[in-house]
């Protein structure tokens, strides 16, 4: 069958947008990562791998941001995935009540991140915030904390907000994945006398692996890029305890006017995310399900 050459034109819009919004910025970032460009001047000098050397060996704040990001990512990936999965199993059947609950759980996702940041900053406020007030009402004063002002726990407080914000979105993916599992398999498992845990472990989880892979990979990327939430709630403080790579790139580029160095960190950032996502794909082995 002869394909008209016109068909190739249909690639153009996508290719053009991809080139403008992804390819060009990525190649530019890579190029500028080898320079000392300040982001404003026409002039810049090539510094070789100096920016990369600085990030990896001579920048204690960058190392701290990587550590913060890993803590944040681990907490969000584990608890957001579990929360979404548990709630997905609860609201799996298409009853009216469950449809309402799914919409309710999904609701935070449609809010703007800055609004979420303001709401949660208020919740966490040590004197006016409702979290400490509720704890006091319940007689749990000993649990009251300076949620965003204590550098030991601030990153975890942010992670809770991130989980609240995005768990509903992941719940929808899990619901779709769970509903796609054939009922027959559950019937067979029941006839074979499998316990609930065995059914989950041997039937549900393996068949849910493709959805779980998407959820975990997406959650990982999302938690690395939680710029707006962190920026609006803590600005990276106190004492850099909530500074993550994305907010640090912003500081270096737009406050220190060091675009060359910020570009190098961005490239390293991309490599870190790609590496972690690759490990997750390998670990979940979503392509090896055989039934």
């Amino acid at each position: 069958m002869k394909i008209s050459k016109t068909i190739y034109l249909f690639f153009l819009p996508g290719l053009l947008l991809y080139s403008i919004f992804f390819l060009y910025p990525t190649v530019s970032a890579l190029f500028y990562s080898f320079t000392d460009w300040d982001g404003l001047s026409d002039a810049y000098q090539f510094v070789g791998v100096g920016n990369y050397e600085r990030a990896l060996t001579g920048d204690s704040v960058f190392r701290k941001t990587v550590g913060n990001n890993l803590k944040f990512m681990l907490m969000v990936v584990v608890f957001q995935t579990l929360t979404a999965l548990v709630f997905a199993m609860i609201v799996l059947k298409n009853t009216k009540a469950n449809l309402f609950l799914r919409a309710l759980y999904f609701f935070p996702t449609i809010l703007s991140s800055v609004s979420v940041a303001f709401i949660w900053a208020f919740i966490y406020d040590p004197s006016l915030g409702i979290l400490n007030q509720i704890l006091e009402l319940l007689g749990l004063d000993f649990l009251q904390q300076n949620w965003l002002g204590n550098s030991d726990i601030a990153i975890y407080s942010l992670a809770v907000t991130q989980i609240w914000f995005h768990a509903g979105q992941m719940l929808i993916i899990f619901v779709a994945g769970l509903q796609a599992i054939p009922e027959d398999l559950y019937e067979v498992a029941k006839i074979e006398g499998a316990s609930k845990w065995q059914t989950f472990r041997k039937v549900t989880w393996p068949l849910l692996a493709p959805s779980a892979t998407i959820v975990i990979a997406y959650t990982t990327i999302q938690s690395f890029k939680a710029f707006d939430l962190v920026f609006a709630m803590t600005g990276g403080g106190p004492n850099n305890s909530t500074e993550i790579i994305a907010t640090y790139i912003f500081d270096v580029a737009f406050r220190s006017y060091n675009f060359g160095y910020a570009s190098a960190i961005s490239v390293l950032f991309m490599i870190i995310i790609a590496f972690i996502t690759f490990l997750q794909f390998k670990a979940l082995r979503s392509d090896r399900i055989s039934y």
């Binding site: 900053a121 966490y124 406020d125 040590p126 004197s127 300076n146 949620w147 965003l148 002002g149 204590n150 550098s151 403080g237 106190p238």
Partner: peptide, 8 residues
């Protein structure tokens, strides 16, 4: 005030 680092 106490918890000053968390005060907006």
């Amino acid at each position: 005030q106490p918890d000053a680092l968390g005060t907006s």
